[in-house]
């Protein structure tokens, strides 16, 4: 993967951890929908053959030296994309739950809306991909919590299927939540008066393996994210002037 030419300013970012069974299919699906668009797999120090599988599908791979967790993994990709000068980055999860056919929709919304972030949402005319009642309840809860903070409703705040433009990339390169990044990232953007929009997307069942989310982990998730949201609301950070955001 090289620095983008003028015409190709989009990077597809795929964070992956132990996804040897799915990653090849994910990369191939992306390349089929977006031929010529570079795909960067950020490997969070997988113990299996994720790196080899991604390379065999002709993706660029950024292997991390040790396990950082989802936020650290995604941020590494954002940092590299920012350094290489990409204008747009769309994140697609390595487990195959995001339908690559929705990528053009997200890219179009990024270009047309002028929003810094576009969220692929399973609840805006999309199908929910068999979301469990526990997750659905969690999403409803965070929707309610986030409404007054963000000043608008977000239908699917836990979606990892997101596209960002260069302004958001600049912010996330410096400051990105580390453990459960999706919801906190919205608050990070709101603090800078950035805008987001949701587009309907299809979520698919995992290609391989199964989710490791348990009721105990869900409770930990809720407490952790709630704390993270309020810390971000209270955090003092110098606002980035609007002019320099665009640079």
């Amino acid at each position: 993967m090289k620095a983008p030419e003028q015409a190709e300013k989009l990077l597809i970012l795929v964070p992956a951890y132990n996804e040897e069974g799915a990653i090849r299919g994910v990369v191939e699906a992306v390349k089929q929908v977006m031929p010529g668009t570079p795909v960067l797999v950020v490997d969070d120090c997988s113990k299996d053959s994720t790196v080899a599988q991604a390379r065999s599908a002709d993706a660029s791979v950024l292997p991390l030296p040790h396990h950082l967790g989802l936020g650290g993994c995604v941020q590494a990709g954002y940092k590299l994309a920012f350094e290489l000068g990409y204008e747009f980055v769309i994140r697609v999860d390595g487990d195959g739950q995001h339908d690559a056919r929705d990528i053009p929709k997200i890219l179009e919304a990024l270009r047309a809306s002028g929003c810094e972030m576009v969220i692929g949402s399973r609840y805006v005319n999309g199908t929910n991909g068999g979301t469990s009642w526990l997750r659905a309840a969690g999403i409803r809860f965070f929707r309610t919590v986030l409404r007054p903070i963000l000043g608008k409703s977000v239908r699917d705040p836990t979606s990892g299927f997101v596209g960002v433009n260069r302004s958001a990339l600049a912010v996330f390169s410096r400051s990105f939540p580390l453990e459960y990044p999706e919801i906190e990232a919205l608050v990070v953007l709101q603090r800078r008066r950035f805008k987001f929009v949701e587009v309907p997307c299809h979520m698919l069942p995992r290609r391989t393996g199964r989710s490791t989310i348990t009721p105990m982990k869900s409770i930990y998730y809720i407490v952790h994210v709630l704390l993270g949201v309020f810390v971000n609301v209270l955090k003092y950070e110098r606002r980035i002037p609007t002019e320099s955001r665009r640079s």
Binding site: M1, P63, H66, L68, K79, L80
Partner: peptide, 17 residues
């Protein structure tokens, strides 16, 4: 530690490129 690990990974990536 996270920033350092990310930097190492990115630098290795540039070297390989």
């Amino acid at each position: 530690n996270i920033a350092l690990a990310q930097r190492v990974a990115i630098l290795e990536y540039h070297i390989e490129s």
